[in-house]
Amino acid sequence: MSPLTVTRTLPADATTAALRADVAHGLTRTPKQLPPKWFYDARGSELFDEITTLPDYYPTRAEREILISRSADIATATGARTLVELGSGSSDKTRHLIAALTGLHTYVPVDVSETALTAAGEALLTLHPDLTVHALVADFQQGFALPGTPGPRLLAFLGGTIGNLLPEERAAFLRSVRDLLAPGDALLLGTDLVKPEPTLIAAYDDARGVTADFNKNVLNVINRELGADFDPADFHHVALWNAEREWIEMRLRARKELTVKIPALDLAVPFAEGEEIRTEISAKFRQEGVREELGVAGFELSRWWTDEAGRFALSLAVRA
């Protein structure tokens, strides 16, 4: 069996430092906001896994449908010998790609969680003992270097996660991805598509309240890590469709006037009744918009696949 290598590019205290900075900046600005990455502690990850099984939450199932039906086409089009995956988590969906990429030599999962990377890498090596797995503990938005691996490379960014980035952040991210790749290497990008507002709202505000618990979990993270005294019951989960921007916004709305103390930051945060924290945007895309954003970043869109219902897309783009 090939070895599993884990390289840490983040300092040991990087996560805590980033949380402190994001909370201090986000809760003292107007309007208040927090990045969605802080949803995902162990409990948040469990809640998100539950969300993906809900009847109205289609993105995970739709993307998996495309991967199952199109992985062989992706393998033929790219001939990838190295597969890089950003935000790899459990590497669950990527297994369809790995099975199809018959010439694959190295898999490079990139995630902030060393525990998740190790567990996923070990599980993959039991299925593909000849595969080389070189995991990187890194934040894909902070910049990192890829290990020396054979080309051509295929970099996968799945789950529609690119929709969590603001347009200027997306542009910077896509340029950084281009800079990681050589001419002829490819990017496989998952994007959720624009669809009727009721379908989108149902996906982000389920009747069972799982998404509400997931949204409020960011408050539990701040309580635990920074000693804050948020009471999640003081906030209401809100999901809104911004038709002009074509994105969903998740927010937490204060049910009453209150002040939250965050001792680790020596900070007291006042909330008016009805005041909101924006915790996530989830942009939805159209094919021509994706083509344009990729083109500006130095990629040429070569393939476009959707699930049968046309809800979600995987695009394959080649670095120019």
Rank of each mutant, 00 (worst) to 15 (best):
V6E: 11
V6Q: 12
V6K: 12
A12I: 12
D22M: 10
A24L: 12
K32I: 09
L34S: 00
G44M: 04
G44A: 04
E46R: 04
I51L: 07
E65P: 09
D73W: 10
T76Y: 01
T76N: 05
T78S: 11
S88H: 08
S88K: 08
S91M: 06
S91L: 03
T102W: 01
T106Y: 11
T106M: 11
T106I: 10
V110P: 13
T115Q: 14
A119C: 02
A119N: 06
T126V: 00
P129G: 07
L131I: 01
A135E: 12
A135I: 05
A135H: 07
D139N: 15
F140R: 06
F140G: 06
F140K: 08
L154Q: 07
G159I: 12
G163F: 04
L165A: 08
P167K: 12
A172D: 05
L174C: 14
S176D: 15
V177Q: 03
D179S: 15
L180D: 13
A186M: 14
L188W: 09
L188H: 12
G190E: 12
V194Q: 04
K195H: 00
I201A: 10
A202P: 05
D206L: 10
A207P: 00
R208C: 07
G209N: 11
F214M: 04
N215F: 03
N217H: 14
N220A: 14
R224E: 07
E225G: 08
D234K: 04
H237L: 09
E244P: 02
E244Q: 06
R251I: 05
L252C: 10
A254V: 11
L258H: 11
A268Y: 03
F271W: 09
E275L: 11
E276D: 11
I281K: 00
E288Y: 02
E288L: 04
R291P: 06
E292P: 01
L294Y: 04
E300V: 14
R303S: 14
W304T: 01
E308Y: 02
V318D: 02
V318Q: 13
